[in-house]
Computed example of a mutant assay.
Amino acid sequence: MTRINRVKREVIRYIFLFIGSIIAAVGLEIFLVPNNIIDGGVIGISIIASYLTGVPLSVYIIVLNLPFLIFGYKQIGKTFVFSSLFAIISLSFWVSVFHPIPGLTNDILLAAVFGGIVLGIGVGLIIRNSGSLDGTEMVAIVFNKRTSFSVGEIVMFFNLFILSSAGLVFGWDRAMYSLLAYFIAFKVIDVTIEGLNEEKAAIIVSDNSYEIAEAILARLGRGVTFLEGKGGFSKEPKTIIYSVITRLEIAKLKAIVYEIDENAFLTINDVFDVMGGKQKKRAIH
């Protein structure tokens, strides 16, 4: 990759970090904060601290994240930390801009649902472009390397404590709405990162591999790759088919495979990013 292309790629990445922070700020200040609904992580702590002290939320978002950023710089690396710092500063700015604007709704359920959706889109864009708004994630990444707990489990532990604290400050009904908003945001983050049209990787082991491959090419228009393998029991060589399809093509692929070989072994797995190559081909490669 040339220097110009690298610079262009970095500029685009920071633009998406900036856009993500704007969207996240809308979710917070237009939906969640006016209705005393919090998010998890440092943002959730910041909302509670701002409510109790009267200090602007934008200040706490930066101040409370700084120790985690310093910790992350030493333990994880500067690229991720600099991206996160940019996103956090941008979020803090836009939170202060949107703060004087009245909330869009006083209906707590609507605020939780739409706040979670909007916040999830913003955070998802930031994570997709190698950033983070939550310093606790950096701690979770480090602890994940040193313990048997996953990053998700460690973050969930932090968030359960934070959301429980919301019950003591705002009331338990707000804590339950906060949990709803957090769950919605969590799911929307996944969709934003992975996309709605998830690709699937199919692996097919059959004695009729070439015939199946030709049928996939002719009837699905999907490219295939042959992998050479060996049966664990029979020790005989096997030609394995690898192909990437959409989830809408799964049923048709199964029909093609088992129409040709009812004893074929077929596995289908999620694929979240497909880069390079040609997915539509007319010749076996």
Rank of each mutant, 00 (worst) to 15 (best):
S234F: 02
S234I: 03
K235L: 13
K235A: 04
E236K: 08
E236A: 13
E236N: 11
E236S: 07
E236W: 01
P237K: 13
K238P: 02
K238R: 12
K238C: 04
T239E: 08
I240F: 05
I240T: 05
I241M: 03
I241F: 14
I241C: 10
Y242R: 14
Y242F: 15
S243D: 04
S243H: 01
S243P: 06
S243I: 03
S243L: 00
V244M: 12
I245S: 05
T246C: 01
T246F: 06
R247D: 01
E249W: 08
E249Q: 09
E249R: 12
I250C: 11
I250M: 13
I250K: 15
I250V: 12
L253Q: 10
L253H: 01
L253N: 00
K254R: 15
A255N: 15
A255T: 08
A255D: 14
I256S: 06
I256D: 04
I256C: 02
I256K: 00
V257Q: 07
Y258I: 00
Y258E: 12
E259T: 10
E259Y: 08
I260T: 01
I260M: 08
I260E: 03
I260W: 13
D261F: 08
E262Y: 03
E262A: 01
N263W: 11
F265W: 04
F265Q: 11
F265R: 06
F265Y: 12
F265G: 11
L266G: 09
T267I: 15
T267G: 00
T267Q: 13
I268S: 01
I268C: 09
